[in-house]
Design a binder for these strands. Structure first.
Length: 120
RNA sequence: GGAGAGGACAGGACGGUCGCCGGCUCGGAUGCAAGGGUCGCCAUACCGACCCGCAAGCAUCCGGGCGGGAGGAAAGUCCGGGCUCCGAAGGACACGGUGAUGGGCAACACCCACCGGCCGCGAGGCCAGGGAAAGUGCAACAGAAAGCAGACCGCCGCACGGGCCUGCCCGUGCGGUAAGGGUGAAACGGCGAGGUAAGAGCUCACCAGCAGGCCGGGUGACCGGCCUGGCUAGGCAAACCCCACCGGGAGCAAGGUCAAACAGGGAGCAGUGACGGUGUCCCCGCGCGCAAGCGCUGGGCCGUCCGCGGGUCGGUCCGGUCCGCUAUCGACUUCCGGGUAGACUGCUGGAGGAGUUGAGCAAUCGGCUUCCUAGAGAAAUGGCCGUCGCCUGCAUGCGCAGGAACAGAACCCGGCUUACACGUCCUCUCCAACC
RNA sequence: CGCGGGGUGGAGCAGCCCGGUAGCUCGCGAGGCUCAUAACCUCGAGGUCGCAGGUUCGAAUCCUGUCCCCGCCA
């Protein structure tokens, strides 16, 4: 039951956490999403959203953010632990919940493997 | 029934479940949190006895309950205000904006009423709607001529020459003429009569339009009438401009508050110079000029500086170090203790909504009753499912599949503009038919 | 959120203030020169001036609305 909650501690809220993820440049992507990853010291993953005006007007941007948050909430047990994910929707893609629920865990695990490789 | 005109409303409904944001409330865990009173004693403290309290509160974490959570445009950011800070800042000029009149409003470029012009058979609609008889300017091409008008053809007169069926025709020159032709977006009123060589507001009547005066109506823009004048003054001010009125700048990322410690920072006084200067001017001085006035490495005045600039290393404004420049090498003493990041605040109850009533043609304003309706912060208002209603297609008995616009609060209001699916209601106009 | 700048041939830019003719460089096409290519010379094509209204006789230009792009402050 509590596995489906989405409290503020699961979100990236500090400017320096975003900057840290961008500077590491550990990215993975598919047709829907682009993800910047960075390890954190917490026992859970965190989600950060970056939705620029290039993907659409305010209604479309809100739709993307809500659906990505919903996908994160519902797939969180399947996500790797201790990782910050900055998620950016790709220009031209259509927001779609089932696609996002498929895409987000896969990208998160690929990012986690990439971080392990690079730390060596 | 058809075709329209104006206005108002609405922006699917109900339910289940998993989440998010903030509010109220209840409970749990941990930590902090508290002792007081009376009696004994001469009395205070200590001490002893007894009684009351031991959780109200605060902090962190966790859980439950209750009720709330995008719009008519939240949009564009085009106007107007509130609010906040900045400024030594007052006036004139400059710069920007607005533009018939009266009213409404906190204010407006908004709203209402009315006036004028244009469009429509009409209901109605549109108008940046002051000034072109203040000044400067603009008008390609065409055309004879385009702004104190203008002679290409035509018409008319005179002179000369020629022809000759001799009072007619042709050519040339000079002059008159704006009635006719043709050009243009635009050619200096229309029409009739007189007049004339031909013509012309040259003169006259009427009409249109203009200026002045008077009378009547209206708060007023303006409207109606009469008289007089002179007959024409053209268009463009979303060209410069003139007139009237309005406007200081920046914006809630405004602004305010907050721990500790030092390095260090800041301010004032005195002194001394250097640098710069309000869009322009103001006071003084000097120069030029008859004067109005004009000019000035000027002064006063105001601001900044008690080093400045660059490279490099580390880093939160900053510090270390090196180099260059320079006028003074930045004294002494007193006082204050900041900013950034972060957190809290500003932050939602207001020129507020609904009903009713009074004033008013109306916009709107007043009285009474009643209601409380989002406050995020890398930024909530969402996901899934069901039932009903609407539309489209298949079908037309049931049903099945699909669709439902424009668009997302960010300090708050008043407007404007732009976008918009399925719709609902009210008032009015024209046409057709029937009673 | 606030503010500023810009949309003109295929590309990059003038013209806009002060309204009547859309011009420059490169590129493109044809011809010439050359044994041939480049360079050079000559000629030519190619533009709804982002879109929609308005003012004007007339709008790339002036005014209003709208769409898109770029940049700046925090």
């Amino acid at each position: 039951m509590t596995a489906q909650r989405f409290r503020p501690e699961y979100r990236i809220r500090r400017s320096r956490d975003f900057r840290r993820a961008y500077q590491l440049r550990a990215t993975v992507s598919d047709r829907l999403l682009l993800v910047f990853a960075h390890p954190n010291d917490l026992p859970h993953p965190r989600l950060g959203l970056s939705v620029s005006r290039k993907v659409g007007r305010a209604v479309v941007r809100n739709r993307w953010k809500r659906l990505i948050r919903e996908a994160f909430r519902l797939t969180r047990p399947r996500l790797p632990q201790g990782i910050d994910l900055v998620v950016i929707p790709r220009q031209g893609a259509e927001p779609d919940l089932s696609g996002l629920m498929d895409s987000l865990p896969r990208l998160a695990h690929r990012a986690a493997r990439k971080l392990v490789q690079e730390s060596r």
